[in-house]
């Protein structure tokens, strides 16, 4: 759906994007994660046609973005991190203004705009001037604008950053429901729990360079370092050190009755670990696999 190849963007002497490349599949949720200033918003602004780029190629729906920009942006919805509106308008007036720009049927649009306002839960405030809205309310209105005319691709830049916990949860549920509608979603966030919950693919960007692009499930397989935490009924003897010699164990940490095994091959370990521990002839009181989160993986990758 989106293909970016060797995209470069410079701001005077600063290289904001250093020949980044990635692909986004149709109907997937693509998580673009990175620290502040990594180049997430710059990439989004380029892909929505708001800023120019120095070199590289972008294809959206198989078409060259530079040649078909005006046509392609019509099938794209964008939720910027800090949306700006005409503050003297109310939500209805702004959505009608955007309807006129997008150009869909004015007769059908009355009910449609009402539905959009209900969807983003702004019905009570819809006739108030936008200037009096809170940041969260503006974010909701921006979401309604992004959704107008059922775009095929949605760019969401930090969509939950200004929302309260309830709003954030609703936003995530909404994104999950859009997956079913085969809408392609490109989401930039530094709330890694959110990315972990909704994304199919993760792209980590740092200092204008793509560090990795991977399916979330594959990412866990590749970067996860599972740890088996085993608690014995009594402190095990020196024979526990024998486990170090096993090829699928990277290391062991002992603390009283508790032993942590750092595993190289999770699939093999799952089959073998209990067999090996039973050979120690000490009763086990608990046993669990500690799983790395996306946050652990992100920090490990960025530190590399």
């Amino acid at each position: 759906m989106i293909k970016v190849a060797n995209l470069v963007k410079n701001y005077r002497n600063v290289e904001a994007l250093k020949a980044i490349s990635f692909e986004v599949d149709k109907g997937s949720v693509f998580g673009f994660i990175g620290r502040n200033g990594a180049g997430k918003t710059t990439t989004m602004n380029i892909l929505t046609g708001l800023i120019r780029f120095n070199s590289g190629k972008i294809f959206i729906k198989g078409k060259d973005f530079l040649k078909h920009k005006r046509e392609l942006v019509k099938s794209v919805g964008y939720l910027p991190e800090t949306p700006a509106f005409y503050n003297y308008m109310n939500a209805y007036q702004y959505l009608n203004f955007m309807r006129d720009i997008i150009g869909f049927d004015a007769e059908k649009s009355g009910k449609y705009i009402k539905r959009l306002i209900e969807m983003v839960k702004l019905t009570k405030q819809a006739k108030r001037r936008i200037g009096g809205y809170s940041r969260g309310m503006k974010q909701r209105l921006a979401l309604a604008v992004a959704f107008m005319n059922n775009p095929e691709i949605l760019f969401l830049d930090e969509p939950a950053s200004a929302l309260d916990p309830e709003g954030r949860l609703e936003m995530l549920e909404l994104i999950e429901s859009l997956k079913n509608d085969r809408i392609t979603i490109f989401i930039s966030t530094h709330i890694l729990n959110d990315a972990e919950r909704v994304c199919d693919k993760i792209c980590i960007i740092d200092e204008g360079k793509i560090i990795l692009t991977e399916d979330l499930s594959q990412l866990y397989k590749t970067y996860i370092q599972p740890i088996f935490d085993i608690e014995f009924e009594e402190e095990p003897g020196k024979e526990v050190n024998r486990l170090k010699k096993l090829s699928w164990i990277e290391g062991i940490k002992r603390k009283g009755r508790r032993v942590s095994l750092y595993i190289k091959d999770i699939d093999y370990a799952k089959k073998e670990v209990l067999k090996e521990i039973s050979k120690l002839k000490v009763n086990i009181s608990s046993y669990q696999i500690r799983k790395s989160t996306l946050e652990d993986i992100f920090i490990r990758i960025i530190k590399k």
Binding site: L50, P80, A84, I101, I102, A142
Partner: peptide
């Protein structure tokens, strides 16, 4: 300057 054109331009304003 106030980025009011972000929405219209991102939806194909001429």
């Amino acid at each position: 300057y106030s980025k009011k054109l972000v929405f219209p331009y991102s939806r194909g304003a001429e």
